[in-house]
Design a protein around this nucleic acid. Structure first.
Length: 192
DNA sequence: TAGCAGATACCTT
DNA sequence: AAGGTATCTGCTA
């Protein structure tokens, strides 16, 4: 406890933070327009009281995260601490990591692929401890609207707007409220 | 084509 | 053991 969570301010006013990253990998990460909320959220994800002081790896994670935020291709090297999530959530996250940049998939398609219920997949996606590293913003409702997104543990209009912008920066075509159906990617399909 | 109910399965406390 | 979802489908009109 005690020590500050690493956080940097981006040029559009967004704060980024990571829970300590060490040899085991990245514990959790998040971003928010509010530094206070960001720190509070990250601390809430640290019940075991990991040392939060900055490390070389947490600095690396932070800069990788900012690159992803700007829609750059994923060349991240940081490992994730899979032990921190349930087996269910791990399988959902691993499918999300396969969604190509510039594509989206739906809760229902993931559900069908993993043989889970779509609502359950929603909770699994929502609990993603590593937004951007695990691109949960690429999961949208079957209606191909933007859908929901939470920042700092809370659903918000800001979150939905951030989700839309992330998709746009990755090259997903969106006209009005709907995503171009060309952008849909199906898990497990050999090649699209 | 939009809106709504019911089904659903897995999470958290 | 119960209550809460970042959903989907199929039925209405």
């Amino acid at each position: 406890m005690g020590k500050l969570t690493l956080a940097l301010k981006n040029d559009d006013g967004t704060w980024f933070g990571v829970l300590n990253s060490n040899k085991d990998g990245l514990a959790a990460a998040s971003f928010s327009p509010s530094k206070v909320k960001l720190e509070k959220h990250l601390r809430s994800r640290n019940p075991e009281g990991l040392d939060l002081s900055p490390t070389m790896q947490s600095k690396t994670a932070l800069s990788e995260m900012i690159n992803l935020y700007h829609g750059k291709p994923d060349d991240t090297k940081i490992n994730l601490q899979w032990k921190r999530v349930s087996r269910f959530q791990e399988s959902v996250c691993k499918v999300m990591r396969e969604i190509p940049r510039g594509k989206v998939t739906s809760y229902g398609l993931i559900a069908k692929y993993l043989k889970y219920g779509p609502r359950a997949v929603g909770t699994g996606v929502a609990g993603n401890p590593w937004p951007l590293f695990v691109p949960c913003h690429r999961v949208v409702p079957a209606s191909l609207e933007i859908g929901n997104y939470s920042i700092g543990g809370h659903l918000s209009l800001y979150g939905c707007e951030a989700k839309r912008q992330l998709l746009e920066r990755e090259g997903v075509k969106i006209d009005g409220e709907r995503i171009d159906s060309e952008a849909v990617w199906t898990p497990g399909k050999a090649h699209q």
